[in-house]
Design a protein around this nucleic acid. Structure first.
Lengths: 187, 187
DNA sequence: TAAGTCATGTAAAAAGTTACATGATTCT
DNA sequence: AGAATCATGTAACTTTTTACATGACTTA
């Protein structure tokens, strides 16, 4: 089992889903911290089923094509619980913008500034997306600090909170970087 | 060319290095934002050379085995510059701890707290490592805000700064999470 | 002489991405 | 009739990891 297995089980543990549903849930919200494409998700579902961690039932629909609804088995839930409470080796850190910044001394300041601003736009957009989700969540759940620890809502709120702080921190650093570059251009 | 190609070129652009040197530089400091193993680095160096972006000379040493010293070619430097000033599609976000947190509602609060603390230790250790590097950098370079934009030192400082802020932000969130869990355990 | 570091690679397997492929149903 | 959404997959390729493999030289 790979992290993706548990990402999928984590989604199924909240509610049964079709592969197609999972495709979208892996975009948002799971994609904010773990991602996978269609070509990885469908085979992984088959693997989970072969391993006895998930099962599916075919659900015919009037207005749409039939779908396979997946849910975790008891063994699947147990495996997920066990994995969740075991500290995991972190995935290697990968930030392509920092790879660029590491060689930023090679390029003209104006280019460096433009690059920084492009990155800033990305992160600002991501932050806005997170804030929209928080807004929606607040409308649905009310005061998030009142959520029970054993509710999926609490878990969603905790991950969202990290996303918000991550983007704010990144943006603060980007502003600092842009200022440092600009400061050496003006005089 | 993949991001790793430019990570390696970025190291070579600062000073010629052997594959073995690059192995260690890919651990630290490059590993803080991009990583690769030996089995990827040596073939990648060969690829860079085949593409005319790097070249090597064999350097015999008295006290140690001979080594291949790599440096970027003019074409390699040009390719690096061009890549650096072009906005890159970000690598997918991957945070295994957040995958766990997303399903944290399934496990006992005491386990959740233990997991959070294990994560906190990791990040605290990483922060200490960054702070030690900052200390060393400060001793070598003096006031970092005086560094010139076109010096590798500036670039190193900028990436380190991001690392420091990332770990501080992560730790702040972990404290918040631990508190939220603890608050529901006590009463 | 054994352990440790310096030094360079390859092989095989796994994980992940891009592109291909198909078909039902609904809406315009 | 064509575009859009729902729905499920596979094939080929690239990237990355894990494990294997070897040898020079130094120090205890």
């Amino acid at each position: 089992m790979i992290p993706l297995s548990y990402a999928l089980l984590g989604l199924l543990a909240r509610a049964p889903q079709s592969g197609y549903d999972l495709l979208q849930l892996m975009e948002e919200p799971m994609g904010f911290f773990w991602s996978a494409r269609r070509s990885q998700i469908y085979p992984e579902l088959a693997r989970l089923e072969a391993a006895g961690l998930a099962r599916h039932t075919v659900v015919p629909q009037r207005d749409r094509p039939a779908k396979k609804l997946y849910e975790p088995t008891e063994a699947g839930l147990a495996a997920l619980r066990e994995w969740v409470e075991t500290p995991q080796a972190p995935a290697p850190d990968r930030d392509i913008f920092l790879v660029q910044v590491y060689s930023l001394w090679l390029v003209a300041p104006a280019r460096a500034l433009a690059l920084t601003r492009a990155c800033k736009r990305r992160h600002a957009a991501r932050l806005e997306r997170y804030e929209a989700i928080r807004q929606r969540q607040r409308e649905e759940d009310g005061d998030p600090s009142a959520l029970r620890l054993d509710s999926p809502r609490f878990a969603s709120w905790a991950t969202l909170q990290r996303g918000l702080e991550y983007e704010r921190g990144y943006l603060a650093w980007l502003r600092w970087l842009a200022d440092a570059i600009a400061a050496q251009m003006a005089p």
